[in-house]
């Protein structure tokens, strides 16, 4: 039963591929996102850029606000819980969320353990900076992975770094180093064997954390992402509707640069980006 559920949960991520998952903070934004072609929305009270400004502890969103978004759209609705916060995850499961993001964007609740996701019926997506982290999350039961990037910055450099690292580390797996790698990554040998055989992660892998423009989205697809999360990039920009539309089309036709050139015209102001060296909290460092 648990195995079947995990399979179905991995399958849902497959259906999201080639799509854009957008952060929304209310039902109105969720509708804008759906109309713009989002394949799912991430319901959260504050987008990462605002979490940075507000500071303090950031937690799971109000279940009522999430339910409001669930009623407003027909596409899947995701929501975030704090790293290691089993009860926040159970609450999200109780309101039948389609995907839980155990996310470094919120303040971690456990400094040693991430959630044992295999104990849940709802699927989880988790962030990763490298192959080891991705495989630890998958071993814990995650059915989808995303790069961590550096959320709320509008700077794509970390997402690029994480995607390239995962790709490189998969390419570096060989029959004669598998045992060493499994030990290094602290995961069962069978999982590393599966990655070597498939030459890819055993679950869908999206890009996240810093995507702000159609060109950024296309770049991540080109580097091997199977879809893109856009957080602050849309609703922190001058013309969210237009930008959301453009990013969706740029993901579908990520190698048609003439089209992306047109899509990039007159988008208004992008979110004001910040460099990770200028910020105090590195969200990507959360999680282990």
């Amino acid at each position: 039963m648990a195995k079947e559920r995990h399979e179905l949960n991995k399958n849902l991520a497959q259906m999201l591929k080639g799509g854009v998952i957008m952060d929304v903070t209310n039902a109105e934004q969720a509708k804008i996102a759906q109309d713009a072609g989002a394949c799912a929305v991430m319901a959260l009270e504050k987008i990462p850029a605002d979490i940075r400004v507000a500071g303090g502890v950031s937690r799971m969103s109000d279940p009522k606000m999430i339910s409001g978004i669930q009623k407003a759209v027909s596409i899947p609705v995701m929501a975030k819980c704090r790293i290691g916060h089993i009860v926040e995850a159970r609450i999200l499961e109780a309101i039948e969320i389609d995907y839980i993001d155990e996310s470094e964007v919120l303040t971690p609740a456990d400094d040693l353990f991430q959630i044992d996701k295999s104990q849940f019926k709802v699927p989880f997506v988790c962030g990763a900076k490298n192959l080891g982290e991705a495989l630890r999350r998958i071993h814990e039961g995650a059915s989808m992975i995303r790069t961590k990037g550096e959320p709320g910055t509008g700077n794509v450099v970390q997402a690029v770094h994480h995607m390239r690292t995962i790709t490189r580390e998969i390419a570096e797996l060989r029959l004669d180093n598998l045992k060493v790698k499994a030990e290094e990554y602290r995961v069962p040998l069978s999982l590393v064997e599966e990655v070597l055989a498939k030459k890819r992660l055993p679950v869908v892998n999206f890009a996240a954390g810093g995507v702000a423009t159609p060109a950024d989205a296309s770049l991540m697809m080109l580097l091997g992402a199977e879809g893109v999360f856009v957080g602050s990039g849309i609703f922190k920009s001058g013309d969210p509707k237009k930008r959301a539309n453009a990013i969706v089309k740029a993901v579908t036709n990520y190698q048609d640069y003439g089209m992306i050139a047109k899509l990039s015209e007159n988008l208004g102001d992008a979110m004001v980006g910040i460099n990770e060296k200028e910020i105090e909290i590195l969200m990507a460092e959360r999680g282990w």
């Binding site: 179905l8 849902l12 389609d98």
Partner: peptide, 28 residues
């Protein structure tokens, strides 16, 4: 649409299609 509910309503079945029993994945 979404006639079986959200992701928690997704399920697997085994049934006949054109005289062959096949595994069927229903995702939302």
């Amino acid at each position: 649409r979404n006639a079986y509910g959200r992701q928690l309503g997704s399920f697997l079945a085994k049934e006949e299609f054109n005289d062959s029993e096949i595994k069927m994945s229903f995702i939302r």
